[in-house]
Computed example of a mutant assay.
Amino acid sequence: MANHGRTAAGRPEAVRLDGVGKSHGRGAGAVVALRDLTIGFAEGTFTAVMGPSGAGKSTFLHCAAGLDAPTTGAVRLGGTDLATLTEAERTMLRRERIGFVFQDYNLLPSLTVAENIALPLLLAGRRAGPDLLLRTAARVGLADRLRRRPAELSGGQRQRAAIARALVTGPEVIFADEPTGALDSRTARHILALLRDLVDSGGQTVVMVTHDPVAASWAHRVVLLADGRVADVLDAPTAERVAARMARLGEW
């Protein structure tokens, strides 16, 4: 793999956005969602991305994860410039090198937990061995639930299954979009502790979009977006610091 960007601490970057701009529509009616956004996400770190409604969080996620192409600038996953890839190559990259976790889990109700976890491997044309499935399920505390279907699981267990599905390909980065948004506070805490442990103990890279200062406080740092730009970066965040900074951005 080509040598890619490094953070100030010398750690390689899993994802980097350079001068990324994104507009929806054309001409006078165009809406600018991202403006000259430059930021990197180091390997083995947990970053929360926050901002007021309309700040560009969803567009950032779609561009960073290769779901959407930026209007200007470059997005790199490791040493790969996503702009150089065909649509088919981008699809394969998302399947093999990126994991996704969503607020509503996106599990297929007709499949068992094991089959849901195996899905990214099957889509990428790889064999889903039982040892790998069991190991992945054990990492998220679901080793005894592999034969259950989503309807037989609690909300927290469904999100654990979704995290296992995101992990199974050994992705370079996991993008989580409001992963605790549908959970009660106690269950959310368990899911956030799991994500943090995947980073601290497993070396995983996690980038999480959230509106919740408590959820953001589990991350190593918080990136605050406003009007499509980086407004601030908070290291070692607390919920109180995040809430105070968000208030100054006009969220509440």
Rank of each mutant, 00 (worst) to 15 (best):
V101F: 01
V101N: 00
Q103T: 08
N106G: 00
L108W: 09
L108R: 03
P109T: 08
P109G: 06
S110A: 12
S110T: 15
T112Y: 12
T112Q: 10
T112E: 07
V113Q: 11
A114C: 08
A114E: 15
E115N: 13
I117Y: 02
A118S: 14
A118M: 10
P120T: 02
L122M: 04
L123C: 04
L123Q: 11
A124V: 10
A124Y: 14
R126S: 05
R126K: 15
R127T: 14
G129S: 14
G129C: 02
P130V: 05
L132N: 01
L132W: 08
L134F: 10
R135H: 15
T136E: 07
A137K: 12
A138H: 13
A138R: 14
V140K: 08
L142T: 02
L142F: 09
A143S: 14
D144E: 13
R145K: 15
R147L: 14
R147W: 07
R148Q: 15
P150K: 00
L153W: 10
Q157V: 00
R158E: 02
R160C: 04
A164C: 03
A164K: 04
A164T: 04
L167R: 08
L167Q: 09
V168F: 04
T169I: 13
P171F: 00
E172I: 01
E172V: 04
I174C: 05
A176C: 10
D177I: 06
A182R: 11
H190D: 14
H190C: 00
I191T: 06
I191N: 07
L192F: 02
A193M: 12
A193E: 14
A193K: 14
L195K: 10
D197K: 12
D197Y: 02
D197H: 11
V199T: 12
D200K: 15
S201M: 03
G203T: 10
G203V: 10
G203A: 05
Q204F: 01
T205E: 01
T205F: 05
V207T: 06
V209E: 04
T210M: 10
T210A: 04
T210G: 05
D212I: 05
P213C: 02
P213F: 02
P213Q: 01
A215R: 08
A215S: 12
A215Q: 10
A216E: 09
S217Y: 07
S217T: 05
A219V: 01
R221A: 10
V223Y: 10
V223G: 08
V223K: 12
L224C: 06
